[in-house]
Design a protein around this nucleic acid. Structure first.
Length: 210
DNA sequence: GCAAAGATTTGCT
DNA sequence: GCAAATCTTTGCC
């Protein structure tokens, strides 16, 4: 179970930790919404490799997205991390967001805007997760399960309450034909404020999953 | 070798 | 609610 797991970046004072509260699954060559739909290419090569590895790519020419490879080698599948709820290192996340925004837009304006953000909005979108955790394409292929990785995953602490998991159709894949367009392969913690896409973060239209 | 579109975010009308 | 920003990857000539 990856939903509820912790994403950890760095060590010591600059350590950033977030709980994964929103995910999307992209599974197999036949999933017409997945980057794997064209077969193995230079970009998606790590999706065809061993599980537990990071797949990082650039979308729309400006935003990075983080995925976790999930299936055995030869079967391309990954989970897109769409949103994370900050647990530790909020200040560092804000700095990372400001650094990244400053490179593209007016620095002072971006700084003030990000300073005002509630912590639940620091990583509430696939591009924002990477901005807050300083994830770039150089992290493509990184082993997320190795304890000494710069970026790694940890299981949710034992004893935590079970999360109210809801499902729905994936976001931003309007180019894909049915049935892929409507597959309920988006998983999120119902009602959690860090979930992206305001208005679609409540249970009701989808079923409660495992 | 060139044209088109994309697993997004933000700001303005 | 709509369009811009921005550049890599894919697809076709």
């Amino acid at each position: 179970m990856v939903l509820g797991a912790l994403l950890v970046s760095g060590d010591g004072p600059g350590r950033r930790v977030g709980r994964i509260v929103e995910l999307e699954a992209y599974i197999g060559l036949e999933d017409m919404a997945s980057h794997a739909r064209f077969g193995r290419t230079k970009r998606n090569a790590v999706m065809f490799g061993p599980p537990g590895v990071a797949y990082v790519y650039l979308v729309y020419g400006m935003h990075n997205c983080l995925n976790i490879v999930t299936e055995a080698p030869g079967r391309p599948a990954a989970l897109l991390i769409r949103a994370v709820e900050p647990v530790a290192g909020e200040a560092e996340m804000r700095l990372a967001r400001i650094r990244r925004a400053g490179a593209h837009a007016d620095y002072e304006r971006a700084r003030q805007q990000i300073e005002r953000l509630p912590s639940s909005r620091l990583a509430s979108g696939p591009g924002l997760v990477c901005a807050a955790f300083s994830i770039e394409r150089g992290h493509d292929g990184l082993d997320l399960c190795a304890g000494n990785s710069e970026l790694r995953l940890c299981d949710a602490p034992a004893g935590d309450e079970p999360l109210p998991v809801a499902t729905g159709p994936r976001i931003g894949i309007g180019f894909a034909p049915e049935p892929w367009l409507s597959r309920p392969w988006r998983f999120f913690v119902a009602g959690n404020p860090a979930v992206s896409v305001p208005g679609r973060n409540v249970a009701g239209h989808g079923q409660v999953a495992e």
